[in-house]
Computed example of a mutant assay.
Amino acid sequence: MRHEKATRLLELARLLASSAEGLTLDEMAGSMGVGRRTAERMRDAVREAFPQMEEVDDPPTRRFRIPAGLDSIFQAPTADEFAALRAAADNFRSLGASTRAQALASLEQKVLSAVRAGVRRKLAPDMEALLEAEITSFQAGPRPFEDETVLTPIREAIMSLRRLKFKYEGGSTPGREREVTPFGLLFGRANYLVGAEGGGTEPRTWRLDRIRDIKLSPTPGTRPEGFTLQAFVTRSFGIYQDGVEEVRLRILPHGAEEALGWRFHPTQTLERQPDGSVLATFQAGGMRELAWHLFTWGDKVEILSPERLKTVMREELAVAVRAHNPPPFPGGGED
């Protein structure tokens, strides 16, 4: 029990050392999964062990931090942590996300170079054993486009609060030059720049693999107040943005257990029904991508609403049937 308490205190100390602005008591409590009184006791215990902890006024609260960081003796990474980092890099690499894979590989090298030689020798066999025993299953999908010549100016524009200029080989006027205020990058089935064109504020998406001749513009560009990339993504089931509606799905009893462990959407609620089915409700747009996903549920799901989703599902089914119906036999007819 004492060892467990010491581990928890060290975890809190690492949080306080890794935060530039510091943490409030409520943030400590939330991060550690404890009540406020327990967070106060843990903070006091950490202060006894690390007297360099600072207290910063941030009305109406106070923040706490360990500005100089922790000695390396408290920061030795574990084989599990290194294996997770390597696995994430390998997963990115297998998906074609070479830029992010290289960033993680570089981070691993930097951390390893800061670890003492004796610790590295002890970690190596455990890391190799874990990497051989754990692998991420393959999932079909498009290979994400990650070109450093595209990503670098986008990230620079976001950090310097400037617009971007590029030619876009997509949309209704392919090849037209656009001037866009970047809001962020969206990685998924395909990778997208999220931003607003010209002096507008309504967010749109541009596929990275269709961007050409990208460069920084001298014109300032900032996100509209209150915009968050997470809220933008949550508006839709997938990438495509359209009207947000309440989606209601009935997962039949033979799919109920699977549905209870499924995440359809961040806004979802799941309710068991008296007949053994599950009612899934969430707010989203992107009906076509949702219909594509519901194909994978086969006969386990029934669309209750909206009508637009039912219509899209019927259209997609009709397309699939037309594509897979065998053509008439040449010269065929009745015997």
Rank of each mutant, 00 (worst) to 15 (best):
Y168D: 05
G33T: 10
G255S: 03
R43M: 03
R43H: 01
L161D: 02
M159P: 14
A231K: 11
A157I: 04
D126K: 05
L112H: 00
R47A: 10
A105H: 06
G184A: 08
E257A: 08
Q241H: 12
L10K: 12
T78N: 06
K310S: 07
I135V: 06
R47K: 12
A76F: 05
A196M: 11
L23R: 05
L290M: 13
E169P: 03
L252V: 12
P274M: 00
R43D: 07
A45S: 05
L123W: 02
R248F: 02
A133P: 12
T281M: 09
E197G: 11
Q230R: 13
L131F: 05
L95K: 07
R116Y: 14
L260R: 15
L164Y: 11
V244G: 03
L252E: 09
G243V: 13
G188F: 13
E40H: 09
N91Q: 07
G243Q: 13
F138V: 08
M28W: 12
S160Q: 03
M1E: 11
A97N: 08
E148W: 09
A76Y: 02
L208D: 13
P224L: 06
E271Q: 04
E245S: 14
A320S: 10
D80C: 04
P182T: 04
E11T: 12
A6Y: 15
E55N: 13
E245R: 13
R189W: 14
K300L: 10
L95A: 07
T201E: 11
E302F: 12
P328G: 11
T205P: 15
T234L: 13
A114N: 02
P266H: 03
E315T: 13
H293I: 08
A256Q: 01
I303M: 14
G170R: 00
T234V: 11
V247I: 11
Q75G: 07
G298C: 00
N191Y: 08
T267C: 08
M1T: 09
K300M: 14
D213L: 07
Q102C: 09
R37K: 05
G298K: 06
D242L: 10
F295E: 01
R155Q: 06
R223L: 03
G199E: 02
R143Y: 01
L185Y: 15
R8I: 04
P224E: 02
A231C: 14
L107M: 10
E27D: 08
E21L: 10
V247R: 06
F282G: 03
D26E: 13
F264H: 12
R63D: 08
G331K: 12
